[in-house]
């Protein structure tokens, strides 16, 4: 192994650690956001259990049909009854933390969680930033 190889591996690892800081962490999820084709299409509270139909991006049928069922149960979010062939979004399982995603590429659906970050100053335990 040459010196350049070590430098490259170090650089890639450093970059991924830096990126990990950008991803929301140490947050409690509060909101479920469903993006369809890059736009926010649905927004639910994670504290209310329910099953919601999601209409993915379907230019051929003009976005009228349900493509997935979004389940929110006990603070966990998952997808069932996906209409696509590969069912990758179903296999992604349950997510419960901001920074985790459920993605459906064929219908351009991206499900993410947003949380409230509690600022750890000690003086104001209830202070919340977005």
């Amino acid at each position: 192994m040459r010196k350049g190889d070590w430098l490259l591996i170090g650089g890639v690892l450093l970059l991924s650690v830096a990126f990990a800081y950008w991803i929301p962490h140490r947050q409690a999820a509060s909101t479920v956001i469903v993006e369809v084709d890059g736009r926010e299409a649905y927004r639910y509270s994670i504290r209310e259990d329910g099953e919601y139909p999601i209409r993915g991006y379907q230019p051929a049928v003009g976005r009228s049909e349900t493509t997935h069922i979004l389940h929110i149960r006990n603070g966990q979010v998952y997808v069932e009854e996906a209409r696509c062939r590969d069912k990758i979004c179903e296999r992604m399982g349950k997510i419960d933390n901001p920074g985790q995603l459920i993605v459906c590429v064929p219908y351009k659906v991206l499900i993410r969680l947003e949380g409230d970050r509690v600022v750890d100053t000690g003086a104001h335990p209830d202070a919340v930033t977005r």
Partner: peptide, 20 residues
């Protein structure tokens, strides 16, 4: 292009590590 969302980059650290 496909999902048109910046949040897909949440996956970046995972794939950078696994790629290595």
């Amino acid at each position: 292009w496909l999902l048109r969302s910046v949040h897909i980059w949440y996956f970046f650290p995972y794939i950078a590590l696994m790629g290595t």
